[in-house]
Amino acid sequence: MPQIAQLADTYASQIFWLLVFFGLTFFVVGRGMVPKVMSTVADRDSQIAADLAVAEAARAKADGEEAAWRKREGDNRAAAQALVAKAKADAAAKAEKKLAAAQKRLDTKLAKAEAEIAEARNNALAEIEDVAVEAARDIVRRLAGVSVTKPAAAKAVKEAMAHG
C-alpha cells in the first residue's frame, strides 16, 4: 500500500502541495470568484422580485382602471335609460293631452248635434200640434157646424196628446 509505504518519503510534499493548491483554490476561487457568482444570483433574484412587484402593481392599476371604466359605463347607461324613460313619459303625456282635446271637440260636436236634433223634434212636434189644431177645428166645424176658437182647440189637442 503506497499510501503507507511511501508515507515517510512523501508526507511533506503531499501536505505542502495540497496547502498550496487548496489554498489557491480557496483564495482565488472560493474568496475571489464565488461571492461574485453569488451576487449575480442575488441580483437576478432581486431583479425578478422587483419585476414581479412592478407587474403586480401594473395589474392592480389595470384592475382599478377597469373598475372605474365599468362604473362610468354603468353611469352612462343609467343616464341614457333615464333619458329614454323621460322621453317616453313626455310623449305619453303629449299623446294623452291631444287625445283629451280631440275627445272634448267630439263631445261638443255631439252635444251640438243632439241639441239640434232635439230642436228639430220640438219644431216637428209643434208643427204637428198646429196641424192637429187646424184639423180638429176643421173636423168640428164640418161635423158639428160649430166654430171652435183656436185656443180651445189647441187646449183640447194638447189634452188629447198628453193622454196619448
Partner: peptide, 17 residues
C-alpha cells in the same frame, strides 16, 4: 530540509485547481 518534490500527486492537484 523537507522533501517537497513536485510529484504526480501535486501535478493532479494543479490540474484540479
Amino acid at each position: 530540509g523537507f522533501d517537497i518534490s513536485f510529484t504526480n500527486s501535486a501535478a493532479w492537484m494543479l490540474v484540479t485547481t
